[in-house]
C-alpha cells in the first residue's frame, strides 16, 4: 500500500517566543523520500519553524501531522518516537559524554536505523575519537556526530538546522556527500540552510520564508527562473 499523503504536513502554524509572535501561519509539506530546504534571511522564523515542529517551542497553534500522527498533542519526548530526528543549529553535543555516549544517547525508535558499526564506516573520524569528550571534537566532527546519532535511531525524517554553518568548504562537501547517501537510502530530509549553493545541490524542493511565514515554494527545476527573485529576497 503506497501512501500518497505527505509524510510531514504543517498548516497555519503560529508560534510565540515568550510574548513575541514569531510564526504567522506557516504552511509546508514534505513528501516521503523528499529533500526540502527552507530558505530565508536571518530572523524570518526558519529555526522557530523547526523547533515548533519538534515541539521544543510549546507555545504554538495550528496543525502539524507527521506520518499520520498529530504532533500538536504529543509531549516533547514523544515527537522523536514518531520517527523524526532533529539536528539543532548549535549541534547539541554534550561535553560530559564521550563521543560514543553521545552517539548512542538518543533511543532507537525503529528497526531501520544504522548499527553503530555502519555509522563508524560512514564517519571513520568518530571511531578514532570515540572515547574523547564530545566537545573535544572539531566543529565539523561535531556536526557529523550530531547527524550520526540520529541515523542510529531509525528516524524516517531528519530535520537539520544549518548543518554547514561556520564549517570549512571541505567539510561542507563531506556533509553534502553524507546527505546524498542518505537520500539514496530513502531518507526524508527537511533542511534549513543559508548556504544556497550547498542547498541547491541536494534539495528537491524549496520553501522561501519571510516575516514568519512561507511565501513561496518551488521545485529545483524552477530554480533558474527564480534566481533573480531569490537574490533580491535573500541578498545573496
Amino acid at each position: 500500500m503506497t501512501d500518497q499523503s505527505p509524510l510531514l504536513s504543517v498548516k497555519d502554524l503560529h508560534a510565540w517566543y515568550d510574548e513575541s509572535h514569531v510564526l504567522h501561519g506557516v504552511n509546508l509539506e514534505v513528501a516521503r523520500g523528499e529533500t526540502v530546504t527552507i530558505l530565508g534571511r536571518n530572523g524570518v522564523g526558519k529555526t522557530s519553524t523547526l523547533r515548533a515542529i519538534m515541539g521544543i517551542m510549546r507555545k504554538r497553534i495550528g496543525d502539524i501531522h507527521f506520518d499520520g500522527q498529530d504532533l500538536m498533542r504529543l509531549p516533547l519526548h514523544h515527537t522523536a518516537r514518531t520517527g523524526i530526528g532533529y539536528v539543532p543549529e548549535e549541534r547539541g553535543i554534550f561535553a560530559t559524554l564521550t563521543v560514543e555516549e553521545n552517539l548512542i544517547l538518543p533511543p532507537v525508535v525503529s528497526k531501520n536505523g544504522m548499527s553503530v558499526a555502519e555509522i563508524y564506516d560512514l564517519f571513520p573520524n568518530l571511531l578514532e575519537r570515540r572515547t574523547s569528550a564530545g566537545t573535544k571534537l572539531s566543529g565539523g566532527e561535531q556536526q557529523m556526530l550530531a547527524m550520526a546519532r540520529m541515523l542510529r535511531t531509525g528516524a524516517q525524517m531528519l530535520i537539520l538546522d544549518e548543518p554547514t554553518e561556520g564549517l570549512a568548504p571541505v567539510i561542507v562537501q563531506r556533509i553534502g556527500e553524507v546527505l546524498q547517501t542518505l537520500k539514496q537510502r530513502g531518507m526524508t530530509i527537511l533542511l534549513v540552510e543559508q548556504n544556497f549553493r550547498f542547498a541547491s545541490k541536494i534539495a528537491d524542493r524549496f520553501y522561501l520564508m519571510e516575516h514568519g511565514a512561507v511565501t513561496t515554494g518551488f521545485d529545483v527545476a524552477d530554480l533558474p527562473d527564480r534566481m533573480d527573485m531569490l537574490h533580491e529576497v535573500l541578498g545573496v
Binding site: T79, P106, T153
Partner: peptide, 9 residues
C-alpha cells in the same frame, strides 16, 4: 530540552 527532544522522558 534537547535530551527530551531526542525522545527521552
Amino acid at each position: 530540552v534537547l535530551v527530551q527532544s531526542f525522545g527521552i522522558n
